[in-house]
Design a binder for these strands. Structure first.
Lengths: 202, 202
DNA sequence: TCGATATTGGACTGATCAGTCCGAAATAAG
DNA sequence: CTTATTTCGGACTGATCAGTCCAATATCGA
């Protein structure tokens, strides 16, 4: 009996996600979102509830694409140092695309709304948590295999790795050169398994 | 002949800076700025020109307090590894204060306006540049003295150090624990002069 | 004391914000 | 074809935004 919906929910969500990703939350007005998604105000409100609720769904969609894309190697059981490397390689590759300048949606939202919106804070916190525990598992495996010689605990090294990621995303958004990002990644990865220094001293 | 001004420009600037620091640019409305500074709309516009111009002056004031405070050790001629350590110690100490949750004004502005406001971008870029060249100089000195054994160039290590700083500020704004920040700093500094690994292999 | 001049308070503007609401349109079951 | 049901377009709301403007006010030199 009902009239058929004229849009695809998932496709609309994807477009809204890219709009937020580009401009952040406040700077992306509802009018802008309507233009980006092509639907009417009433449809948007009927379907998603409101601007904040839409952002939360976009963060979910963003997380899914993250865990299916650049972060995916980290979630495989038995991930190793190579998988950690692969994550950074993928991040760098994405940062090199025109869309890469937008950095990370979760990162941007955290910076903009972290202190003032508990729901957004929770959503981004969950993403952080999942990435970091992936790093920690991979570090533990890599330490057991001797690929990572840095004796800090997996949890600590995971924090360090995530922090580098976080900085990279902000740098990309600030327009950093590819070289700059590569340098940072190289030093970071090298910190996990430093070359044996000058050796033969003692 | 003129009527005497009823406020202290520097004090007003300081209050406005803290308002922006707390809420970012867009979320800090003019009304909020007026309440924070205590002056009237016409005084604010006569004195500073407008909201964006005020932010730019706040960024200048912020840079001055940064270079006279946490970053100061880095700007001394002949700064060494200890001075790099001292910078991070000061950053950690500041992050532990209630105000530390706000992170870094320049960082927040870069994330919020980096891609859309060239003037803000230039202002924050100049701050980054100055901090990073301070890091680079200190790294060069420390390498020459053998305090830093990591063979990467001073410029590259400076990028790495700044990236850690950048991540720390976002983490602080996201409400990270003190332990978390400390872990990140420890791993970062250790990456500059890694302990001689297991040694005596080879 | 007095007048020239800058500061100040606050009303005002037009734009834009997120969000509401309802009549018109479209559809599918009967 | 009719009708129940949902979607859709767009007008509308009240709040808030940054910014303008001017009359009232206060001050200082003379």
């Amino acid at each position: 009996m009902p009239r058929t919906r004229e849009f695809d929910r998932a496709a609309v969500l994807d477009k809204a996600m890219h709009a937020f990703w580009e401009g952040g939350y406040r700077a992306t007005s509802l009018d802008h979102l309507l233009a980006a998604t092509g639907l009417s105000k009433s449809s948007l409100y009927d379907t998603f509830g409101g601007k904040q609720a839409l952002l939360l769904e976009c963060l979910d969609a963003y997380a899914r694409q993250l865990f299916a894309g650049p972060i995916e190697p980290l979630l495989r059981a038995g991930a190793t140092f190579d998988d950690i490397r692969e994550v950074f390689t993928r991040i760098l590759a994405h940062a090199a695309t025109p869309a890469g300048r937008r950095g990370c949606l979760a990162n941007t939202c955290m910076g903009e709304l972290g202190g003032s919106d508990a729901a957004v804070s929770a959503a981004t916190g969950a993403i952080v948590e999942r990435i970091e525990s992936g790093f920690a598992a991979a570090v533990a495996t890599a330490q057991a295999r001797g690929e990572i010689t840095n004796p800090e605990s997996p949890a600590v090294l995971a924090r360090f790795l995530f922090n580098t990621l976080s900085g990279l995303n902000l740098a990309a958004r600030a327009g950093a050169s590819h070289d700059r990002l590569q340098d940072i990644v190289r030093v970071t990865l090298d910190a996990l398994a430093p070359a044996p220094a000058v050796a033969h001293t003692e």
